[in-house]
Design a protein around this nucleic acid. Structure first.
Length: 486
RNA sequence: GGCGCGUUCGUCUAGCGGCCUAGGACGCUGCCCUCUCAAGGCAGAGAUCACGGGUUCAAAUCCCGUACGCGCCA
């Protein structure tokens, strides 16, 4: 076991938003680094010039920041970097890659390949036909200097391939899956430099992980198959390999790889729907990792203290919004009122509830605190305090159109118009007295009040809600509802 | 097609040969609380541990096949 200081990295390609799978990979890298007092590095793998965009970089950095996962080295924003291994954008490191490319070329461990796309397609077609694995046959491996010169004289472009060993096996000693063996002669000679004169992902990745002293490469399952090739590049350069850990994928409810079809996949969408960063950390931590006890809710400190690679799941996990929602509700309930209102600010603003006349938001939100699953639920559940009552048709028909309901509203408006103090307990006592006086049942009075004041059959505890709403508003709403019944 | 990975309640999972008549969490059902909806409390249903063979006194746990799913190569 290495005694080196732990260094992990998350290395996204900026070709889109940070999705749930990437978020979990980031989290695990972060947790592992923090767990071992190590360093967490963020590196942008933007070698795909066509698909990489600045907007994606921004979106990814925003996502990681929102998740609350701070990185020790990496981009600060689109322009500057922090850390001793800067720059952390691969396209700014091309000279470095070129240096090692030349080293491999000089050592005869890589070679120029002049095959065109058409030729490669043909090769593949034939292989399919003959039921052979459709891989590059290595025809340019043994080209002489003269042959190469004539290809180039003919103006042919070339890519550069890495020479995989033709015999033996490469073992990936995976921290999660154990030893995984690959036969070398079944691996093809990987393109490490493109015809367009640029490095490829698999090459840069190796160079950077080595140069940046990465000790643990924790990444998605989809990279496992490329790992033997990468390991051989380490060997060819005379480097020690880091330890690898491949995480299983995250699936959608139908068992296929989580994608747009399944709804939200981008981390930022979860932010915009009103999930708390802590919920995402906790939920994602448990999606593919677990402790031996039955604990579900963890503080960040607990997560950091307990996280390990041993308990990472080998099989893929289905993303379950229902449990996510439960957890978010748990954390919203655990959030102090003032903090909750601050967190909900964008949602309250979007709903136009800020600065509206009416009760203090803090009071109305407090009434429903235990019911919110999402921050975006907050305005939906308290908006009736701040705008004219909109009656739910069913509630209106069932409760207000009930026999006697109109009279109850009218009588109550009279009873309450001068009532003081207009507070929870006194109100309850008075209204219960009203019920008795009229020889009615609780429901015949309580329900109409609620619907008249809120438009709905469900809502906060009644008398406290009336207190918060205030006498004038309550009396007015009772009368308006009665008038509507005319 | 080749190679690789995986398979425990609907979902996330515990389990590393006897403690498993398989435990927990979310969800679901019922009851309690109650002015509604939640929250909370209690109870319950729900998994022949993918299938088939071995190994062993003993297997969800080890080995081998099969099926299915997924990934990579293109």
């Amino acid at each position: 076991m290495t005694t080196k200081k732990v260094r992990t990295r998350f290395a996204p390609s900026p070709t889109g938003f940070l999705h749930i799978g990437g978020a979990r990979t980031t989290l695990y890298n972060w947790l592992f680094a923090r767990r071992h007092g190590g360093t967490f590095v963020l590196r942008i793998e933007d070698t795909d010039e066509v698909r990489s965009t600045d907007d994606s970089v921004t979106a990814i950095l925003d996502s990681v920041k929102w998740l609350g996962l701070d990185w020790d080295e990496g981009p600060v924003d689109g322009k500057t970097d922090k850390g001793p291994h800067a720059p952390y954008y691969q396209m700014k490191r091309v000279d470095t890659y070129r240096k090692y490319l030349n080293q491999l070329l000089d050592a005869g461990k890589a070679y120029k390949c002049y095959c065109t796309k058409e030729e490669l397609d043909e090769m593949r077609r034939l292989a399919q036909l003959e039921k052979r694995p459709p891989r590059y046959d290595g025809r340019c491996r043994a080209l002489t200097k003269e042959q190469q010169a004539s290809q180039e004289a003919a103006g042919k472009k070339f890519s550069i391939r890495f020479k995989m060993p033709t015999e033996g096996v490469t073992v990936v000693d995976d921290q999660i899956r154990g030893k995984v063996q690959f036969e070398n002669n079944l691996q093809q000679d990987l393109v490490i430099w493109k015809t367009t004169d640029g490095p490829t992902y698999n090459f840069c990745c190796v160079i950077d992980d080595h140069l940046m002293d990465i000790t643990h490469v924790i990444r998605g399952d989809e990279h496992l198959s490329n790992t033997p090739s990468q390991i051989q590049i380490y060997y060819a350069l005379g480097w020690e390999t880091p330890l690898f850990a491949h995480l299983s994928m995250i699936l959608g409810p139908d068992g296929s790889k989580l994608s747009k079809r399944h709804g939200a996949t981008s981390v930022l969408e979860y932010r915009d729907q009103g999930y708390l960063p802590h919920t995402m950390r906790n939920y994602l931590a448990l999606l593919g990792w677990s402790t031996t006890d039955s604990q579900q809710l963890f503080t960040d400190e607990e997560l950091v203290a307990k996280f390990d690679l041993e308990h990472c799941q080998k099989n893929p996990a289905t993303f379950d919004t229902v449990k996510l929602n439960w957890m978010n509700g748990e954390y919203i309930r655990a959030t102090k009122l003032d903090d909750l209102i601050a967190l909900a600010d964008p949602f309250l603003a979007a709903a136009g509830l800020k600065g509206k006349p009416g009760p203090e938001l803090k009071k109305t939100v407090a009434l429903e605190h235990e019911k919110f699953k999402l921050l975006s639920d907050i305005p939906k559940l308290v908006d009736f305090f701040y705008k004219p009552v909109e009656f739910d048709p069913k509630a209106f028909d069932k409760v207000l159109k009930a026999p006697g309901a109109k009279q109850v509203l009218l009588d109550l408006a009279e009873t309450l118009k001068d009532f003081a103090p207009f507070e929870d307990k006194p109100l309850e006592a008075r209204i219960r007295q009203f019920v008795t006086d009229k020889g009615l049942k609780n429901g015949q009075v309580f329900h109409p009040i609620r619907v008249a004041c809120t438009g709905r059959t469900e809502g906060p505890t009644l008398f406290l809600m009336l207190e918060v709403m205030g006498r004038d508003a309550v009396v007015q709403r009772l009368r308006e509802a009665a008038a509507k019944l005319a």
